[in-house]
Design a protein around this nucleic acid. Structure first.
Length: 208
DNA sequence: TGCCAGGCCCTCTTTAGGGCCTT
């Protein structure tokens, strides 16, 4: 059983919004953190088997010429399945990334047993006065230093990692808690925004 | 880009509609 304090924070770049419409992954980036410290990284381009459109090229900076010599999705996703093992998973707007992870792994008959938590749903509860919950806005709102280009998989994973660690720190400080378990954040994302404080107080009183 | 997907979430809600967020 993997250490529950080890999690994978991941991000996909894709050919579009929906694998159900034929879209495929073109890049996966991920950060492995253990007890809040980055221990490993994963980044690979992958060839979806067809040309990506101009919007995706300009949105991500990933061009068809970059993908031409990349390994096929099946090969990269097999390596990625090895990387994530059975760790818990985090992504910004996780429903999107989970959809592509599930679709790509289904193609190669691989699976995972970790649970997903969405950093956007968590941020809506932890930072209730943020102007919006786009990843870049939250990073700016938190005065986190930036050095790279959004919409590349590893960079967005790194930024989501910084957001994640910031949320853990904010909760620790606000509620005077030494450690925030993954399971607590998962439950927090299912708690109504206006009930966050009472949820945290109740959790603290039953855990200490 | 434009509004092709889908889950979340708010409200002028729950027998619904529409904005947000991801590429």
């Amino acid at each position: 059983m993997p250490n529950a304090n080890t999690i994978i924070i991941l991000d996909f770049e894709t050919t579009g919004l929906s694998p159900n419409q034929g879209d495929r992954a073109i890049e996966i980036g991920a950060v492995l953190i253990e007890n809040g410290v980055i221990k490993d990284r994963f980044q690979q381009l992958m060839n979806p088997g067809f040309r990506v459109d101009g919007f995706i090229e300009s949105y991500t900076g990933i061009t068809n010429s970059m993908l031409k010599d990349a390994a096929p999705c099946e090969e990269v996703m097999n390596d990625f399945a090895d990387f994530i093992e059975d760790y818990h998973l985090v992504a910004h707007n996780a429903s999107f990334d989970k959809c592509f992870l599930d679709a790509e792994l289904k193609q190669i008959s691989r699976s995972y047993s970790g649970q997903f938590v969405c950093s956007m749903l968590a941020a809506r509860r932890v930072y209730q006065t943020a102007p919006n919950y786009k990843l870049a806005t939250l990073i700016d709102y938190l005065d986190i230093s930036v050095e790279g280009d959004y919409h590349r998989a590893l960079y967005d994973s790194e930024m989501t990692t910084k957001l994640w660690l910031s949320m853990l720190e904010s909760l620790c400080v606000e509620y005077n808690i030494a450690e925030i378990p993954f399971e607590l954040i998962k439950k927090l994302t299912k708690t109504p925004k206006k009930s966050v404080d009472s949820f945290m107080q109740r959790w603290k009183s039953t855990s200490y």
